[in-house]
Amino acid sequence: MKNFITTYCHISGDTCSLNGKVLATLDTSSEDGWLKQLYRYSRQTYPKFYKMDMLSQIGYLASGFIKSNHVTELSEYADDEIALVFANRFSSAESDIRFQKSYQEQKAPSPAMFVYTLPNIVMGEIAIANKWYGENMFAVLPKFDADWYVNYSQILLQADAKAVLGGWINISEEKPEAFVFLVEAAESGVEFSTDNLHSLSGID
């Protein structure tokens, strides 16, 4: 069976959409920040969410939206059959700067900030939240590279993975640019190719 992109989610600085349809937009009158608004919208209860850095919050939210709108339960896959393939441009820079401030300005290095100064932590959070024991890969690439995702995902899908949750989560000047997608053998969806992935991503 061929591999298809069956569900995908975008989160920008003011809009969250699933499969191209808008789920939520930024409420500028709210006291809550944008990601907290999305957390409320998602109706999930996961107090750890507030401790996460932005990268992890976005990964957690996007994977949650994909899961809840998937045609079948993702739990039908064995606990190690969903691989995570994530990438971005700036690694964990946003958290790195925050941690650096904790020791340079507040004179107290924060352990809770330090543990988020690695880009792969977002995959750890998704794995923990879902009890997924599969393969993880985080790459830092100068720009969104559909070839990388397709090539590496195909390697995993030809080995033990049955599905790949891919993600590009970049944070630039505290604004997110996120595209998270699920690839699996399916009857329908968007065929998993470099061109299709690039055009769905909406990223230049």
Binding site: P47, K51, Q106, A108, P109, S110, P111, A112, V115
Partner: peptide, 17 residues
């Protein structure tokens, strides 16, 4: 409160701060 090991370290920072 359901705190974890990292929270414990953060409480140490709090005491100092």
């Amino acid at each position: 409160l359901g705190l974890d090991s990292i929270d414990a370290l953060e409480l140490i920072v709090l005491l100092e701060k």
